[in-house]
Simulated assay, not measured.
Amino acid sequence: MAGGWAKDGAEQAQIDDTVNDALARVRADIPEGESLEHCEECDEVIPEARRRAVPGVRLCVSCQTEQDEQSAAASPYNRRGSKDSQLR
């Protein structure tokens, strides 16, 4: 049983669209260009190893971790998959 914009029997199309949207969001967050030597947020030095490992890095590990936690908390998707969680 499909819902939303899809016809009956089109569950896989909904799943594919959800996955493709998530991939597009993640790809948009991938840093590009030259890495910074100092964090954009706290001005701490970004270690050389991190700059080489993540080309285009703009945040130190601490600030990146905090940003990732905030992004995960604001996810618009129901990842639990239970009907009860959808009713909340």
Results as ranks from 00 to 15, higher is better:
Met1Gly: 15
Gly3Phe: 12
Gly3His: 11
Gly3Trp: 09
Trp5Lys: 15
Ala6Glu: 13
Lys7Val: 05
Asp8Val: 02
Glu11Ala: 10
Glu11Cys: 11
Gln12Met: 14
Gln12Cys: 05
Ala13Lys: 02
Gln14Arg: 05
Gln14Pro: 00
Gln14Ile: 08
Asp17Cys: 03
Asp17Pro: 00
Asp17Met: 06
Val19Gln: 07
Val19Met: 09
Asn20Trp: 03
Asp21Thr: 03
Ala22Thr: 06
Ala22Ile: 07
Leu23Ile: 02
Val26Thr: 04
Arg27Lys: 14
Ala28Leu: 10
Ile30Glu: 11
Pro31Arg: 06
Pro31Val: 13
Glu32Asp: 11
Ser35Asn: 05
Leu36Gly: 02
Cys39Ile: 07
Glu40Pro: 02
Glu41Met: 08
Asp43Phe: 05
Glu44Leu: 13
Pro47Leu: 07
Glu48Lys: 12
Arg52Ile: 15
Ala53Arg: 07
Ala53Ser: 11
Gly56Phe: 01
Val57Trp: 00
Cys60Ile: 08
Val61Ala: 14
Val61Asn: 04
Cys63Arg: 02
Gln64Glu: 08
Thr65Gly: 08
Glu66Arg: 15
Gln67Glu: 13
Gln67Pro: 00
Asp68Ser: 11
Glu69Thr: 04
Gln70Tyr: 10
Ala73Tyr: 05
Ala74Arg: 15
Pro76Gln: 13
Tyr77Pro: 01
Tyr77Phe: 12
Asn78His: 07
Asn78Ile: 14
Ser82Ala: 05
Lys83Cys: 01
Asp84Gly: 03
Asp84Phe: 02
Asp84Val: 04
